[in-house]
Measured scan of single mutants.
Amino acid sequence: EDYYQILGVPRNASQKEIKKAYYQLAKKYHPDTNKDDPKAKEKFSQLAEAYEVLSDEVKRKQYDA
């Protein structure tokens, strides 16, 4: 799945936009606030993985290549 789609940001998003999108979605899908939703944990880990790659310039360049 596309990391940009997961975070809901365009491919040319700035680091600030990526961070903002991640924090909004992380708050929304955090397992502690969605105890009754088994998919929230999965969504949250996808968000974390996408953010880890896109927030790191080197990893992001490799991902975009």
Rank of each mutant, 00 (worst) to 15 (best):
K35W: 09
Y51M: 04
Q24Y: 15
E49Q: 10
H30C: 07
Q5K: 14
Q5S: 12
K61N: 06
K28M: 14
A13V: 04
L47R: 02
E1N: 11
N12E: 06
L25V: 04
N12K: 08
S45L: 12
K61T: 06
D36G: 13
L7G: 00
G8A: 07
D36L: 10
K43F: 13
I18T: 01
K59T: 06
V53Y: 03
V53M: 04
P31G: 08
K19N: 09
A13S: 07
D36E: 13
K43I: 14
K19P: 01
V58W: 08
Q62K: 09
V9A: 02
I18A: 01
K35Q: 14
R60Q: 01
Q5I: 09
Q24S: 11
F44Q: 05
S14L: 07
K28W: 06
E52D: 14
K43H: 10
A50R: 00
Y51W: 09
K20D: 15
Y23S: 14
R60D: 02
S45I: 13
G8L: 04
L54T: 01
V58N: 14
R60W: 00
K27G: 12
Y29W: 10
A26R: 14
Q15C: 07
R60K: 08
T33M: 13
E52C: 08
R60M: 01
S55V: 06
P10V: 06
N34A: 10
D36S: 11
Y29N: 06
N12H: 09
K43N: 05
R11Q: 07
Q62L: 09
K41E: 10
I18P: 00
D56V: 03
F44C: 06
V9T: 03
I6T: 07
E57M: 08
G8T: 03
K59E: 03
Q15R: 11
K19D: 15
E42S: 09
Q46R: 14
Q46C: 08
Y22H: 03
Y23E: 15
K61R: 10
K41D: 06
K16H: 15
Q24D: 15
E57V: 12
L25W: 05
E49R: 11
V58F: 11
A13R: 00
E42Q: 12
E57S: 08
A65F: 05
V53G: 02
D56P: 01
Y3D: 00
A26P: 00
P10W: 04
E52P: 02
E49A: 12
E57K: 08
S45N: 11
D64T: 02
P10E: 13
K19T: 15
K59F: 04
E49M: 11
Q5Y: 13
Y51Q: 02
E42H: 11
K27T: 15
A50F: 01
Q15G: 10
N12L: 08
P38I: 10
V53D: 01
D56C: 04
A40Y: 09
Q24I: 15
E17V: 07
Q46K: 13
K19I: 14
G8P: 00
K59N: 04
L25A: 09
A26M: 12
L54V: 02
N12C: 14
K28V: 11
I18Q: 00
G8I: 04
T33N: 13
S45G: 11
V58H: 10
E49H: 07
L54K: 00
D2S: 11
A48H: 15
D32H: 09
P38H: 08
K43V: 10
A48S: 13
Q62Y: 08
R11Y: 07
D37W: 07
P31I: 05
P38E: 11
Y29A: 07
A65P: 05
P10I: 03
D64V: 01
Y29L: 13
V58G: 09
Q62P: 01
T33C: 10
N34V: 10
E57R: 05
A65Q: 13
L54E: 00
L47Y: 06
Q15F: 14
E52G: 11
K28T: 09
A21D: 00
Y22C: 02
P38L: 10
L25T: 04
A13M: 02
E17A: 11
